[in-house]
Design a protein around this nucleic acid. Structure first.
Lengths: 249, 249
DNA sequence: TAAATTCGTCTATTGATATAGACATCTATA
DNA sequence: TATAGATGTCTATATCAATAGACGAATTTA
């Protein structure tokens, strides 16, 4: 009957610097409510002792989180937790961006960043049940809540069937509304594959992240109720700001 | 109409060393099939140019992946991709470890590592609908497939109702079979919350990971068909070896 | 007002990380 | 068998990461 392992130790020579690991730990502690919002963090010397590192290393971690807007340091007073817990993003058969985030944020929307017509790659063709190289429309979108990027997605639609969906999307700002214009009243999430990795340069720019951050990646297919695929998408979420809630289908 | 951003660039001063970032990229390339199994990677000089770093930095990344058993380097010949793609782990209303992995692996099982009786923490009590401090049984398990750790979970059960489930679990090696002994013929996944973070020291030991790895974390509640919660669990998956497939419910 | 607490800055030192170049060693092939 | 192409090893240097200690500056508390 062993106890739960103490997880507050740090790995050296890992390829991940200590200050980044400690920043991650502080973020996690905030996310699970260990460090409450609008209260002071333990003082730097206490954190240094807790994690077994030098005070300057803790300061590097705090400095990164101040840059990210999570903490605010005040000389003589302390370091305070600013940001709210992670946004809980629903994933389910009827996942739509606009629903499910209600109550968690005051302001949310989707921005259409770019669109293009292109030949379907292998995986897009597979996902949509098209021949490889068939023309598809790609929509690049960013989801924002309270002024922060919470998702960055690329969605592919068959070009023949959904010609002009880019313009509709730009006008409506909603995938659901855009599909409705093409006679799709209802659609379901047919499959979702989920993975995680370190943010690359593109993620950093797209999601306004600091280097070293982690992104959650979902690859999904939406289909009509009778199983006909209509959208293939790859979405990226900043793990430090978003958790995925797998809702009932 | 912008193009897809080239994602092969590297972040410096990020808290994540370049060799670790490149190791991640190579893992990702293998996972999506860019570098096929049992074939040679591009030569070190080519990778160095591709990622814009020194050859020695690429060698550090490769060396780490050789340690992890993903690659094999042969002097004079090349560096070869050994490991298979990520295991696709099903998550759904009727998720059980034994089903769904069929065909992907030849050998799989769950090991009971430890068990204990303890008072319910805040979140466990909430998840199970018990009073805080009520007695619960905790089972610590590891899932293995083809000799590699693919999951590490802690599960909590109400102690009164499931007294002795630890012994049954040790005997059967199956949560489903253990619950059956207590009259639970069927159960459903009531909720799942998913997040990602860097592996800490405990994860490294538990999942046999190299420092710097990423873990996927799910916190879930299983309940009887009529909605009575029976199990609260937190599971950790190595992101480099596992992706989660959200299956229909 | 004085003391204690806390964050901010500075210097110095050590070890890990990254670059650079040269050359050895092994393998496949012309 | 000679050569090209690949990994392996070595030296050297510059920068980043981490530790250590001392002290300054702002705030709260006694």
């Amino acid at each position: 009957m062993i106890g739960r392992p103490a997880a507050d130790r740090i790995e050296r020579r890992s390829g991940v610097s200590l200050w980044r690991q400690i920043a991650d730990k502080i973020l996690h502690a905030i996310a699970i409510g260990d460090f409450a919002e609008n209260t002071a963090l333990p003082p730097e010397v206490a954190l240094a002792e807790r994690y077994g590192v030098n005070r300057h290393t803790v300061r590097s971690a705090i400095s990164a989180l101040v840059q990210e807007g999570v903490l605010r340091a005040e000389q003589g007073r302390g370091t305070f937790v600013l940001s709210r817990k992670r946004l809980s993003y629903p994933i389910g058969a009827r996942t739509r961006f606009s629903t499910g985030l209600q109550g968690q944020t005051s302001e949310r929307h989707i921005v259409l960043l770019a669109s293009s017509v292109e030949p379907a790659s292998q995986r897009v063709a597979e996902g949509l049940g098209l021949a490889r190289g068939a023309e598809v429309i790609r929509l690049e979108t960013r989801g924002e809540a309270d002024g922060r990027a919470v998702s960055r997605a690329a969605g592919w639609f068959e070009a023949r069937r959904f010609a002009g969906i880019d313009a509709v999307m730009a006008e409506t700002g909603s995938i659901t509304a855009s599909l409705a214009r093409f006679g799709i009243d209802d659609y379901l999430r047919q499959s979702t594959v989920l993975s995680a990795r370190h943010a690359d340069a593109a993620d950093l720019a797209d999601l306004d992240l600091q280097p070293g951050a982690i992104v959650l990646v979902t690859v999904a297919v939406n289909a009509t109720p009778d199983g006909q695929p209509i959208q293939f998408s790859e979405s990226r979420f900043p793990a430090e700001r978003v958790e995925l809630r797998l809702s009932a289908l």
